[in-house]
Design a protein around this nucleic acid. Structure first.
Lengths: 137, 137
DNA sequence: CGGCATCCTCGACGATACTG
DNA sequence: CAGTATCGTCGAGGATGCCG
């Protein structure tokens, strides 16, 4: 095969690129999963909830520039995919707590590789960008 | 701190969530990097090029449902960020080869953790989704 | 062959107001 | 407090045609 560790972008068991063709979002596992966590706020919320559970209002204050429409919707999507749990406490007024599931934690662990890469190599990317923009070859 | 390996979503050296506030795309390293590779076609092309270099037309045939406008643009963006190289051979008619850089390979290695997670856990996510949709609590 | 220029669609996301 | 409903914007991406 190949020694480059290029993984299952395709299917679980195929590593050839012969049939990339028919992979729209609906039948490609990778795109199906990633399309949900690549939203504007998903990673921010996942990061927060990876530390400890938060209530709706707490998350709002943590991320002041998120509209509450998107906060609601993003949390719902993350819950739908099984990454976070939503617990309602029948207090008065009601309070709702969001917490990360086991599935969510395992996903975030994988994601953290990319996040830390980004933190480490951000400068290199910015330099590459500047170089490229300087000489529009 | 914390033992959960939640990484530098924030800044290079801070692991508190106290100031998530002022992180728009422009001053958050993670979002700055990820916004470029989370495009519709970026990962597909990165995956292909992680195996071997390809020419423009080859990539078109590999991914038939990409418009050639987006192929050009995505390749340009990846080149701009330093992930791939663009080599023009002055043949007649001209041919252009795209190949992954060292930076690109190191980034793709980090990304591969997420890709393989997606491949492994796609079924679990789909099940969670069905369960959620079944009972709109 | 490997593009670039133009026009258009459509869905993600924002702003605002109202509710149990 | 934790949402839902409605309307509006804006840009990613698609379709088509031309060029060195």
């Amino acid at each position: 095969m190949d020694q480059r560790t290029p993984t299952h972008l395709l299917g679980p068991q195929r590593s050839d690129l012969s049939a990339i063709a028919d992979w729209d979002t609906s039948n490609c596992p990778v795109r199906d999963v990633l399309s949900q966590i690549s939203g504007k706020w998903s990673m921010l919320l996942l990061h927060a909830l990876s530390e400890r559970p938060y209530r709706f209002g707490e998350l709002r204050r943590l991320v002041p520039d998120i509209s509450q429409r998107m906060l609601t919707q993003t949390l719902r999507d993350l819950q739908r995919d099984g990454y976070i749990d939503r617990t309602v406490f029948p207090t008065k007024p009601p309070s709702v707590e969001y917490s990360m599931t086991t599935l969510g934690h395992s996903m975030f662990d994988a994601l953290s590789h990319v996040l830390s890469w980004a933190g480490t190599n951000h400068a290199a990317v910015r330099r590459a960008r500047e170089t490229f923009d300087a000489s529009p070859v």
